[in-house]
Simulated scan of single mutants.
Amino acid sequence: MNEWKISKIKEFLEMNQMTDELKLRLLNDTRKGVHKIVQEYEKKEEQQRQLKEKFIEMSQFEREFWKKDERIIVGVDEVGRGPLAGPVVACAVVLPEDFCLLGLDDSKKIHKAKHELFYNYIVNHALDVQVGIVEAQEIDEINILQATKKAMREAIHLISLPINHVLIDAVELTGLTYKSTSIIKGDQKSISIAAASIVAKVTRDRIMKEIDHQYPMYQFKKNSGYGTKEHINAIEQYGITEIHRKSFLKSINY
């Protein structure tokens, strides 16, 4: 390999696994650029190892139920409890036992640039994905906690498979006809809940981008309805809309 250009070595390692023999040959190469390629490769391998460990750790709840022959596990999460405008969106996801998406985590911990990529992978590989939505007017009528629970129930009830168990992020849902477990910080501890959080996040962001066409002055495509300085300034200038949560705005004197 000593006669290979550095670019060719890099290209080779992008397509092939590095063996101990190959690593030794590369380290014996006198070129600093080759040593740097080895370091970058090992760093990438370590990152992959950590991601695999994290994914296995987050699969513990699912694997325990799968061992008990409870195959249809529904992960449930919501997005949009805090904004001043727009709906609360919940998602219910059923993942297959061979599902693997390294880097899956709470949507808030995943770079926004990856949200759409993860969303597409999840909806294309999940056994079922359903969404429940409760609009701002109803949030004002029944309060945000009850609206969140309603959106979650709607998403769960749309699942077409025979549910064995429901894993829910933090919220306790009563009255379900299936066994359920509420997990604090579940979107960091369960791959099913984490997948639901991604789908709910992307779904709600898309809704807010559509609303932005109708009300561009509030910059909903940027703030997703949260109370940013720009959003508050727009409310002061233009007033509130039908998609604003009036019960939330009372707390900031609007």
Rank of each mutant, 00 (worst) to 15 (best):
Ala151Met: 08
Gln130Trp: 00
Glu70Ile: 13
Tyr218Asn: 06
Gln214Tyr: 12
Gln214Leu: 15
Glu242Gln: 14
Lys5Ala: 14
Ile156Lys: 08
Gln146Tyr: 11
Leu167Glu: 00
Ile6Thr: 02
Ile133Glu: 08
Glu138Asp: 12
Lys114Gln: 12
Asp140His: 12
Asn143His: 07
Gly33His: 04
Ser197Trp: 05
Val79Thr: 08
Ile156Leu: 08
Leu249Gly: 02
Lys67Met: 13
Trp66Gln: 04
Tyr121Glu: 02
Lys23Leu: 02
Gln60Trp: 11
Pro162Gln: 07
Ser180Asn: 12
Asp212Trp: 04
Lys32Phe: 09
Glu116Cys: 01
Lys149Ile: 00
Val202Gln: 00
Arg71Val: 02
His213Arg: 12
Leu84Asp: 00
Ile9Tyr: 04
Lys43Phe: 15
Asp128Tyr: 10
His111Asn: 15
Lys179Ala: 15
Val38Asn: 08
Val79Trp: 04
Gly103Val: 00
Gln50Leu: 13
Met58Ser: 10
Ala136Asp: 12
Arg204Thr: 11
Leu22Lys: 09
Asn124Met: 09
Val38Pro: 08
Ala126Pro: 06
Met15Arg: 15
Phe220Lys: 15
Leu13Gln: 09
Val131Asn: 06
Arg81Lys: 09
Val171Trp: 03
Thr174Cys: 01
Tyr121Ile: 05
His115Gln: 08
Lys250Trp: 03
Gly186Ile: 03
Val129Met: 01
Thr148Asn: 06
Thr228Gln: 03
Gly82Glu: 07
Glu70Thr: 13
Met208Lys: 06
Ser182Gln: 12
Lys32Tyr: 12
Pro96Ile: 03
